[in-house]
Nucleic acid binder design. Structure first.
Lengths: 127, 127
DNA sequence: CGCCTGTCTTGACGTCTGTCGAATCAGACA
DNA sequence: TGTCTGATTCGACAGACGTCAAGACAGGCG
């Protein structure tokens, strides 16, 4: 078994959201589904998935809209709309500094989503 | 909405292969985003998220539609529609055995999605 | 001050999605 | 064979979504 997880199951999600034993371990209650589904939905668009990745993988932990926009064949308003969607899903934070607006990922919720999808090798191997 | 509607399973995510370095580690390329976004989208509905969980956490690794349907205040056709969405996203498999139809989760793609969202503590701690 | 650049909001348009009722298909069983 | 039950498909509808053009807002600079 992997030891990558030292103190695993008790995810330290300082969550403001009700959180998550793995989806495959215990049935997700309706309230949890209602809270987390919008986050998955926000990631359910290729453009937003790339935006999320560009922001999360940015060097300083933040990315400027001026860097994000030219990476797509889409207008500024459209990118802005997608960024707002990510923000409203709680996946990113925005901050204006002077002329430019910077977006920053929120690792907690990403961890929650990853935890929800995680599969214990043992569980998966059952069949 | 970016289109990627297929009436048939498109995703060949059968690979246990090293599909995806974490989203926060390397920028997700457009092709990967196009392939994985539909899976997130399929999980982006509370009903489907619960269905997915009920199937994945089922005792024998599979769940009968007859057990799934009465868990919601929705008609049979609606549940059937959601199950088809999950199937077309490559998240579940369906098999008819006699009178009943059983759905089974596909752990590979769940693992891929989890891997994509996973965050190295080191990476997350940067701030 | 006025202008310029960068970003967001508004309004509109076509498409997709979630839901239902009715019809249809697939097996089981008398 | 006929009929019954379980599941899917079909047709339709309201609402949400992705996209754009045009306008509005914010901050820097001459």
């Amino acid at each position: 078994m992997s030891k990558q997880q030292a103190s695993l199951p008790v995810v330290d999600l300082n969550a403001d959201a009700p959180c998550c034993p793995p989806l495959a371990q215990r049935r997700v209650p309706a309230e949890t589904a209602a809270v987390l589904a919008p986050a998955f939905k926000a990631l359910g668009d290729p453009v937003r998935l790339q935006l999320m990745s560009m922001i999360a993988s940015a060097e300083d932990g933040e990315a400027c809209v001026c860097d994000l926009t030219p990476a797509f064949d889409l207008t500024g308003p459209t990118i802005s709309h997608h960024l707002r969607t990510l923000r409203e899903a709680g996946l990113v934070d925005a901050e204006r500094r002077g002329t430019w607006v910077y977006y920053r990922a929120r690792p907690q919720i990403l961890r929650q989503l990853a935890a929800l999808l995680s599969i214990e090798p043992a569980t998966a191997a059952k069949v």
